[in-house]
């Protein structure tokens, strides 16, 4: 590789760790293929207390999706930065586990626009699609309720995502510490400025009209909330992402 080409290379390394089992424990950790997650006395951070009444976490074993849920707000991968900023350096991520976030109001009613995915998870969610868990995944089900009198406003929806992010951050913090050589798979993505292929631009038009028509761009952690900006707050104006930023979890969907 010429010096010029090498200088123009940006590198993202994604190390994948496979989870064999998910169990409850007093503190989050990842050990010998088992992911331990918290489920008791889950606190809500100060600014979320007026908006959310409770956070509950369940573990669903692979294939055991016959569980009634209010509307599915999001499916969130678990990944963290170990070195560098989003889009470069090293990322650790987990396979074999997915997070499903659900939200209902104080009375248990789901938010809905044209439709709602309230119902049994196995009937309301296909598995093995790009945006849904694998059929072999453990699912960490995060269930949130709004407080009495709080509606599905922008504030309420953002609070739900923030609460889930706070919960996942404890897992991410553990994931940062695991042995960098003990991965199941390793993917290296190099960005070369010039190697003769045709340049194709991806343009993604995404909802930016309020509450559940929003997305966050460029969080501190892959697929996270903290540090990101809402596209509505950015005036819905275009944001350019490098392919490595995008594949490193630059978007958090609030749709």
């Amino acid at each position: 590789m010429s010096q010029k080409a090498e200088a123009s290379t940006k590198r993202l390394v994604i190390k994948v760790y496979h989870v064999e089992e998910v169990k409850f424990a007093p503190e989050s950790k990842f050990e010998g293929g088992t992911l331990f997650v918290e489920h008791e006395n889950l606190p809500l951070s100060g600014e979320l207390v007026p908006l959310l009444s409770r956070i509950e976490v369940d573990i669903l074993k692979p294939g055991q999706l016959h569980r009634e849920v209010p509307s599915i707000l999001d499916v969130i991968p678990i990944a963290c930065k170990v070195l560098g900023r989003l889009g470069e350096g090293i990322t650790h991520t987990l396979t074999g586990v997915s997070t499903v976030l659900t939200l209902a109001d104080a009375g248990g009613k789901p938010p809905a626009q044209i439709g709602s995915s309230a119902g049994f998870l196995n009937e309301k969610m296909l598995t093995d699609r790009p945006g849904t868990p694998s059929g072999r995944d453990f699912i960490i089900l995060i269930r949130l309720n709004l407080k009495e009198g709080v509606t599905f406003s922008r504030k309420g929806i953002m609070a739900a995502h923030q609460a889930a992010d706070d919960y996942l951050q404890k897992i991410r913090n553990q994931l940062k510490k695991i042995d960098g050589q003990a991965y199941t798979e390793k993917h290296v993505f190099e960005e070369l400025l010039d190697h003769g292929k045709k340049k194709v631009l991806l343009i993604k038009l995404l909802p930016g009209q309020g509450a559940m028509h929003d997305f966050f761009v460029l969080p501190n952690e892959p697929c996270g909330v903290e540090g990101s900006r809402s596209i509505i707050d950015l005036g819905n104006m275009p944001v350019f992402l490098t392919p490595n930023e995008y594949r490193d979890g630059a978007l958090r969907a609030l749709t």
């Binding site: 340049k199 194709v200 631009l201 991806l202 343009i203 993604k204 038009l205 995404l206 909802p207 930016g208 009209q209 028509h213 929003d214 997305f215 761009v217 596209i231 509505i232 950015l234 005036g235 819905n236 104006m237 275009p238 944001v239 350019f240 992402l241 490098t242 392919p243 930023e245 995008y246 630059a250 978007l251």
Partner: peptide, 8 residues
């Protein structure tokens, strides 16, 4: 070459 995300 990149991904441009834009709000509707």
């Amino acid at each position: 070459v990149g991904v441009i995300v834009v709000g509707i």
